[in-house]
């Protein structure tokens, strides 16, 4: 693979990971006290609800969302990695084809003009 292709692949991959890291949704991190005060604020003086029970439910819901996020991100990253990998493998296949073509051209050039080919190799 030529140096140019390798650089293109590395730059493209780095661009993708940078964009992904900059823009991905941050983890849901809510401290316990914050849940308590928010639930109290919403309920106010309404006594028909059990405040502790609601706090537990909200904490549990946040925990589920939190745990689910890493699992969802794992699938998302895998899918985009696959897209990248397939396209890169195809570009690699094209670069191999180009190299093969170049070899065949050199071979033909050698046979048609042996002296000129020697000079080309010496860089004259």
């Amino acid at each position: 693979m030529s140096k140019f292709n390798l650089i293109t692949i590395v730059v493209a991959f780095l661009t993708f990971t940078t964009v992904f890291n900059i823009t991905r949704q941050p983890d849901i991190i809510v401290p316990g006290e914050r849940i308590e005060t928010t639930v109290s604020d919403i309920l106010g003086n309404d006594t028909q609800y059990d405040e502790t029970e609601i706090q537990q439910i909200v904490t549990q819901a946040i925990q589920i969302l939190n745990d689910g996020q890493s699992r969802r991100l794992k699938y998302l990253i895998s899918a985009y990695f696959v897209v990248w990998l397939i396209l890169m493998l195809y570009i690699f296949h094209l670069s191999q084809k180009q190299e093969q073509l170049q070899t065949e051209l050199d071979l033909l050039n050698n046979q048609l003009q042996p002296d000129k080919a020697k000079e080309d190799r010496k860089g004259i």
Binding site: T15, F16, V19, F20, I22, T23, R24, Q25, G68, Q69, R72, L73, Y75, L76, A79, Y80
Partner: peptide, 21 residues
């Protein structure tokens, strides 16, 4: 495209991040 997918498009309510596939 990468910016619009990860930075601009809103999250789908049920599938969240996975929907970006």
């Amino acid at each position: 495209a990468l910016y619009s997918v990860f930075g601009y498009a809103e999250y789908e309510g049920t599938m969240l991040e996975v929907q970006k596939i």
